[in-house]
Design a binder for these strands. Sequence first.
DNA 1: ATAGGGTTAG
Length: 873
Amino acid sequence: MAATPQALASNSGHPWLPSTSARKPRFFPPPYSLRAFQTTLSSSKSSKTIAKDSTLLAQKHSIGGTTEIRRLCKMGNLKEAMNSISRMDSEISNLDLETYCSVLQLCAEIGSLLDGRKVHSIISSSETEIDPVLSSKLAFMYLKCGDLREGRRLFESLQSKDHPFLWNLLMYEYARNGDFEESVHLFERMWFSGIRPNSHTFTCILKCFANLKWGREAEKAHGFLLKLGFDAHNAVGNALVSLYSKCGRIESAVLMFDEMPDKDIISWNSIISGCVLNGLAEMGVELFTKMWFAGIPIDLATLVSVLPALAEIGHFRVGSVVHGYSIKCGLGKEITLSNSLLNMYSKCQNLDDAVRVFERMGERSVVSWTSMISGYSRDGRFEEAIALFVKMELEGIRPDLYAITTVLHACSCHAAIEEGKFIHNYVSRNGLDSDLFVANALMDMYAKCGCMEFARSVFDGTINKDIISWNTLIGGYSKSSLPNEALGLFSEMQLKMKPNCVTMACILPACASISSLERGREIHGHILRSGYLLDGYVANALVDMYAKCGALPLARLLFDRMVVKDLISWTVMIAGYGMHGYGKEAISIFNEMKREGIQPDDVSFIAILYACSHSGLIDEGWRFFNIMRNEYRIEPKLEHYACMVDLLGRAGRLTKAYKFIESMPIKPDGTVWGALLCGCRTHRDVKLAERVAEHVFELEPENTGYYILLANIYAEAEKWESVKKLRERIAGRRLKKNPGCSWIEIKGRVQIFVSGDKSHPHSKKIELFLESVQRRMKDEGHIPKKIYALMNADDSLKEETLCGHSEKLAIACGILNSPRGKPIRVTKNLRVCGDCHEVAKFISKMAAREIILRDSNRFHHFKEGRCSCRGYW
DNA sequence: ATAGGGTTAG
């Protein structure tokens, strides 16, 4: 009976080892010559010879044991096999290599690292010579059992590594552990060692590319595989489909899929999940139905892949058909399927059905709980979401990072600070705060709740901060109106890492809020150098920054150059024109947006209504208000009403405005009444002002601005007694006037002025300059409006304060310290005062300088003695 | 003829 290589191979179980004739007799002995084999073995040992007197006995046992062990291995009884080996071990004996191999094989299959290690130690302490086959088998066992380090060590010690099998296995294990780079690295080493990869190698490497998002390698690899003819392997083709999908190249994935001649179930599943991944839910569902009607078998992965697509489209009816089908198929108990189902229902606004699925599940994983938590949170029921988190914990399910971040997200979305603190406490107690994802979610939660001190303390306590940590905190400061903190942190960050697009989009609003054109320009330069301008968020933030820093033409230039303009871009530009008082331009941009087919939303309507009111475009304002309600069916919110009241107020239609507020279907807030109070001031209606003010004071008792406003109304009507009473009222409430302050950037430095400030180094010069302005104004017949100073200081200081208003100081400082012809840009935290407004007009003419003043409400462009607001402020 | 491609929550 001739021992063909194939037959030998099947006996040994190692078909891939090089079958050189020299090795054959030793490693692949025919079963009947076992004795001869062992003789060969012992004779091959030169120094370590088996003790001669016990040899025979040992061999006898060994042979008997060997048969028994092999039989046990064949049956898959590892426990008994191990027991036998242990027994043999106590008698000085050695098993043959093949038996060791079969035990190791079984350890590998079962995944019992402990037994595998035991066998390894028995082999090491015995006199068995570890030959290449055994070392390979050992490496194989370690890799299969998850001991990558030991597997790698044994692999490296192998003399010959010229078969791809162990390479593949090693690569696969690295990939399984998420170390895709190492896997690719091994592939390169393998390739340059001249070892021919096989289809397994390529499927593994394609998967690594997919996880590394190496989209560009996808095409290269594809071409290469075509050349080698590996594209004919279904597994390789499927891996390519998956790679293309995961790198966002869904067209290529579809092309690949279409061209596959023998699509199997995995091909279908891959393309369906690829579509879903790339936002082509409809196409995913279409493919699924095609599969369904073509009678192609459908399995668990198919259903689990298509359910998110159904969720996205909102096809919960089809979803429930799938639900029924899955039960019929006997997949009802599958936990991943139930998770996908409950997620589908909850995303289709069908939380009750989701709860039903959840409650009927025999076993629930952390994924099930997390899905329910996000379901409740999506429904706005964040208290129940948080309660569910507590319940999960009580049921002994340990929340993982996803669960924690999901529940924290629920807290951030609803500014639920108490609940957020509760979760924070849980996180700390369980030592989960060392995780970066959790720490970042905590920072985000605190930032969204407006608790920047807490966000900061988490930030400071996080050791390995990543870019997300920095961005979260910077963005938090920006949004919490702490622009200086945001800018400070941004500078600090630049010492440690390179900011990305998100950083830019987070920091620009900070520049915008303090109108820091210099800092904004610096960041613009940074953006240009990094190529971040292509990012839509960054471009929008940049346009907004320029508009808010008073550089409207620059904003427009950037806006015009934007390749893709989204709703935000248009809205930013409309709002930009609005705050500068260019109502007509705002309207024309709005119309252009509509022509481009972009649907305005509630925010863009706020922008256009604001623009109309600040330019006195009353009829247009009404027209937009009606279009919004009738054409776009957008329910007006408080902001829209406030704009409309403002519009009516400016036009002097105060009674109509009052009635308008009374007819509102939602409860008006302080800003709505406040807008009317402004109108009362403009049109000097003291009586109505008093009525309106009571509403405002009731709604916003802490806001001093409104008391000042009413006081000014009294003062302008020369009702000094009422001024006095109101002042007492404020004093009784212990309210303090928010001090007015203005600032200007000169040569890259911000100069800040508060009323009556004399600490500035150029104070004397500024004073002299303002005195000269005042003299010239008097000469030309202007009378200073003393009343504006009333609420700001003691009576004795009145005259002086009038001259010392912060915006005037800043403007004067700008005139004195910047080159001729350069526009002066000043920002004030409150509304500009009337006297200062007159003075600014005068200076713009006198000094032939453009002055751009941003106050808390809008922009004023002073040029040649006129202001762009034309009195609308 | 020991391995590989597709799977839910954020």
